[in-house]
């Protein structure tokens, strides 16, 4: 379980949010809301451990994530604005590497199944350079099908996706929550997040 207590983050000399506290338990989905520049991405990056907050603590199962170090990263999958895929590699190669970096054991078969489910069957041997924006996003999302990490941090995962992909991602989110996973998500689009105990947190009032 993730608990965030009294964190304050600033960029330059602008304080984005002050003394923010919340927790995410297994089976929870937290939907972060807020205007542009309200600090959603910064908050997500702090929770990942990529950004150091000015004050406050973030705990994973009662241990500070700063003390957990690399062990914490095994528990987290972060999907940021960038897809995190190499244009010159094929979807399959990208996923193999991503799985290694996420600390997951996978084999070729699992990757093929994941690509098939995400709707990229037949594209697995092409360099991702030739894929469309939406297809590239799908490659990035396929990581979610391969990972065993309980905490997913998704920053605008629905951008560039068509309706069928949005439905699919919703389904994946639902499954993860049903399996006692945890998700923190930001999205501007009006997407019905029907899964589990959906909580909402509004930033920047």
């Amino acid at each position: 379980m993730l608990s965030v207590s009294n964190i304050t983050c600033s960029r330059g000399d602008r304080t984005l949010f002050r003394d923010l506290s919340f927790s995410v338990a297994p089976g929870d989905l937290l939907h972060l809301k807020g205007k542009n520049g309200s600090g959603k991405t910064t908050l997500l990056r702090s929770i990942c451990g990529l950004f150091l907050q000015d004050s406050g603590e973030i705990h994973w199962n009662d241990t500070s994530i700063r003390n957990l170090g690399e062990d914490y990263f095994r528990e987290v999958v972060y999907l940021g604005h960038h897809n995190g895929i190499k244009d010159d590699l094929t979807a399959e190669e990208n996923l193999t590497i991503a799985a290694v970096l996420d600390g997951d054991e996978t084999d070729e078969k699992q990757i093929r199944i994941a690509l098939e489910r995400i709707g990229l069957r037949g594209y697995d041997d092409l360099p991702t350079r030739v894929l469309s924006q939406g297809q590239k996003r799908r490659v990035a999302l396929a990581r979610l099908l391969l990972t065993k990490s309980p905490l997913w941090i998704l920053d605008e995962p629905f951008t560039a996706l068509d309706t069928s992909a949005i439905d699919l991602l919703q389904e994946i989110i639902r499954e993860h929550i049903a399996a006692d996973g945890m998700i923190i998500i930001t999205t501007h689009q009006e997407v019905a997040l029907t899964a589990g105990h959906a909580k909402q947190l509004e930033l920047g009032n």
């Binding site: 690399e70 970096l101 600390g103």
Partner: peptide
């Protein structure tokens, strides 16, 4: 630079192995 631009560097920073 390349890994920084396409976000793969971020994945490396979040890998469960020593950076």
């Amino acid at each position: 630079a390349g890994d920084f631009q396409d976000g793969t560097l971020e994945q490396m920073l979040l890998a469960p192995q020593p950076l």
